[in-house]
């Protein structure tokens, strides 16, 4: 079992706003020029749209209007938690699990904690990618 990857940030808004912007307006804050399928062709994606309900999809509209499925929502607990099968650029069976928790720190600050796991979906390669190779003598 490979260690999940954890990333935390604080946002300057209340929990409900942070959650709503995260799931409903992903395209407004996601760096579409830097991390998208279109980026691989040196272009910014045009848009990102979400359908925030279990099974609802996350879809990029590429620079040439091609649509790319990034993943889908699994569980949604309004304002507190959302999980997604995330496989951007890979076949859906190689989805990693992304879980996001929204912890209120005050009425103006919220901690967003993102955990990515299920690296096993990527097979043996997962270990090579997460730990690197060369440490076992090769």
């Amino acid at each position: 079992m490979l260690e999940p990857l954890v990333s935390r940030i604080e946002v300057a808004c209340d929990q409900q706003t942070a959650f709503t912007i995260f799931v409903e307006q992903m395209g407004a804050w996601w760096p579409l020029a830097k991390r998208s399928m279109s980026m691989h062709q040196g272009q910014s994606a045009k848009a990102l749209r979400t359908d925030p309900r279990p099974g609802g999809q996350i879809i990029e509209t590429g620079h040439d209007d091609t649509e790319h499925l990034w993943g889908s929502f699994k569980r949604i607990v309004p304002h507190e938690f959302v999980s997604m099968d995330f496989h951007m650029g890979l076949p859906p069976e190689q989805a990693s699990l992304v879980e996001v928790r929204f912890l209120p720190l005050s009425d103006k600050r919220t901690q967003v904690e993102l955990t990515q796991s299920n690296w096993e979906a990527f097979g043996d390669l997962a270990e090579m990618m997460r730990r690197g190779y060369g440490s076992d003598g090769c």
Binding site: S7, I9, E10, V11, A12, C13, T17, A18, I21, Q25, A28, W29, W30, P31, A33, V112, L114
Partner: peptide
């Protein structure tokens, strides 16, 4: 999970700024 760099498009959503990720 960082603030988006300013976009060239003028129609920058207000909420992007409000999200103010640090």
């Amino acid at each position: 999970l960082v603030p988006s760099p300013p976009r060239s498009r003028s129609a920058k959503p207000k909420l992007t700024r409000d999200l103010c990720l640090n």
